[in-house]
Design a protein around this nucleic acid. Sequence first.
DNA 1: ACCTGAACACCGTTCAAGT
DNA 2: ACCTGAACACCGTTCAAGT
Lengths: 207, 207
Amino acid sequence: MPRPPRLTAEQITETALRLGDRDGPQAMTMRRIAAEVDCDPMALYRHYANREALLDAVADAAVAGVEAPAPDAPWAERLTRLLTAIRDAALEHPGIAAHIASRPPLGPHGRRLAAALLGTLSDAGLSPADAVRTFQTLTAYLAASLAMGVQAGTRDARWEQVRTVVDELPGGMPGEELAVVGSTDQFSYGLQLLLDGIRARSAAPPA
Amino acid sequence: MPRPPRLTAEQITETALRLGDRDGPQAMTMRRIAAEVDCDPMALYRHYANREALLDAVADAAVAGVEAPAPDAPWAERLTRLLTAIRDAALEHPGIAAHIASRPPLGPHGRRLAAALLGTLSDAGLSPADAVRTFQTLTAYLAASLAMGVQAGTRDARWEQVRTVVDELPGGMPGEELAVVGSTDQFSYGLQLLLDGIRARSAAPPA
DNA sequence: ACCTGAACACCGTTCAAGT
DNA sequence: ACCTGAACACCGTTCAAGT
């Protein structure tokens, strides 16, 4: 009789997520993940085709806790709440945030959230074609905001350098705290810009 | 008398750019770049602190050919032309496009283009604070569009998979060619959305 | 048939030894 | 003083050998 496998796919992703949160993205190597779950590195390949597939699964696990807002709120509010929740969830896991930024999660949780997003855009009165295009625009913006994401204690040195350059630009605002690259304030501003654009195409204004 | 150095920083970035275009991003390793310029790998460290610094310089070289539009056109048109030109330049260099997407070039050419962008937003009537915020939003959107960028013959297998998932989503449009993730059409749509949002905040409409 | 780990073909970077 | 390349401490993944 076949014993249940000592190692499950979920155990691997959960452990990898914790490892990344603790030691950063560069720690999420096959060898170190294997050491963390105390198995041979090759055992991981029994559950995932390669490192990329494993990281995709970890990314999906990172957004598992995000819930789609109830459909009774106005569409603009639902969009804001959902996108903010995804951003927050990703930033809570610094180990995998950059991976999520490089492409949206495609596992069950990612698809669930994508469906919620598309449904909300449909409720906003967009045609199916425009809903898909807008969905992709919002996804792109969210991904880039994550890449620039700054969380307390997780400041990315490279984006910090970008901020310095922006400050030194003619017309820039040296010392302006509001304009911090990747801040929540900055994210909200761009999102409002996009929502205004969507409103202009929407047949059902939010009021 | 000190001879001129056999190897210049420009030679290195130009060679690395060609190598990346020919063999892809994963070919741009210190060792292979060194082999391409026919020097010891360690000689590269005489010109760049580390691999990241070298790739930053290559990214800046990739946008060297982009010129800011003349300031007599309406601001919306100037924004569109400039962002499109940067996107085109980056997509012409598949070896470095993903690196540019992960953060904007910070070298002389990158700063030149950033200054042009900020100036145009100022011409649009935005306050300095809003210009900086909008600049960052546009930069974020451009970066993400690049990450999803699909160029003839350069289709990224991972984003191809995203397209498949989007097609299968409820409310999605299976077989809809217009909605290709990362397409130029898709890029323009999102950019228009943002321009509409900017217009709403602009004191000087383009007409 | 399944699993394991040695081995392969690489990395970026350090640093001691050479000129 | 400058430069070089051997060596270090890793990678992801293949595959032959074991159970």
